[in-house]
Nucleic acid binder design. Structure first.
Lengths: 188, 188
DNA sequence: GTTAGCATGTAAGGAGTTACATGATTTT
DNA sequence: AAAATCATGTAACTCCTTACATGCTAAC
């Protein structure tokens, strides 16, 4: 069985290894504590994913340089091909790819991304939420059920709120990106 | 192969057929327009699910009573066993079962549920959200990354809002539920 | 008379999960 | 010495999707 594709997980692993090399167990910990605000990954998916990424040459493995009595752990590190692959994935971000799960992972990479990529992801997410909102509104009283209507109302409100949040982030991003006034910005 | 379990989809189908018998195509339409506010199902999952439910005896199929030139559609209807199965599933609702996906489906059944079941589901969802909130707060500044912190802040705010929404629904439910003496459970 | 939508399916695959198996190391 | 947790995996399964196959029927 070749080629497990592991979309979200693969992206998350690429993102984490972009920061620093790490071994499997540590990866899972960071996956579930930092990225995994909205979801948790198990070893049963992580290790096969690493195996496949190795096979594709996106990561390489090295025995940990350890002291004396310690068994060396298997440390994974992003290869050049892995860097390219990550950039390729980010270059392909579309609204369709900005579902709840993926957006969290994309967002987690923001610290390392360039401003134009950040903006594209924020806009992609915004577009997607707008579609959802339209859908939610397109059947206003089709259902007689009060509970369903209330659920939909609350859903629409949440989506609106997230759109508003994105608008603020986008505005902030644009202010710090377009350096009209001579303002020495912060980090790149 | 046997026994596809199809949790969410099965639950949704049981719920829809609880209301009224329907054929596959119509089921999918209602799934995606009413329940599927948050997700869409495809025929490739629906029809095998129906097949399996048939095999288990939870639904039965009948050729539609049609007029003249019309080809009769295959109409599915909940059996006694199906009713029991649905009640069993609802009786087993725990906080763990109240994830984003399932909660929407549970909620969609509220119109047919008794008040105590509604309350149990609302509380189950609330408990689950509280756990998530605690998790979100348990690592406040563990990350130096501003973006991740902002993502988490917004996530926590959304969760708080939903909890508040649930609190209102619960209060409303309790007001309308038991101001009068305890009545022996009549079916809803 | 051809597109669009109704209607019912199957086969293969995707992206994970749970449960299992095993052993090393650290903490109590 | 026992329990916890670190660490690395595999096998079987789940639940759903996409793509495919097929034919009917209504609308333009």
């Amino acid at each position: 069985m070749g080629a497990r594709r592991t979309r979200v997980l693969e992206l998350a692993v690429l993102g984490l290894l972009y920061e620093t090399p790490l071994h499997g167990y540590g990866l899972r910990k960071r996956l579930n504590s930092e990225l995994g605000v909205f979801r948790a990954f198990s070893y049963g998916s992580l290790y096969p994913c690493l195996k496949e990424m190795l096979r594709q040459g996106h990561i390489s493995q090295h025995p940990e340089e350890t002291g004396f009595g310690r068994r060396p752990r298997i440390v994974y590190r992003l290869t050049e091909a892995g860097h390219e692959h990550l950039h390729g994935m980010l270059a392909d971000v579309t609204p369709a790819a900005c579902d709840d799960e993926c957006f969290g992972v994309y967002f987690a990479l923001f610290g390392h991304a360039r401003s134009d990529l950040r903006l594209r992801i924020l806009h992609g997410r915004r577009d997607r939420l707008l579609s959802r909102l339209e859908e939610l509104r397109s059947r206003p009283s089709h259902t007689a059920d009060d509970y369903l209507r209330e659920l939909r109302r609350h859903g629409a409100e949440s989506v609106e709120r997230e759109i508003h949040w994105l608008d603020e982030l986008i505005a902030r991003e644009q202010r710090s990106a377009a350096p009209s006034p001579p303002q020495p910005g912060s980090p790149g």
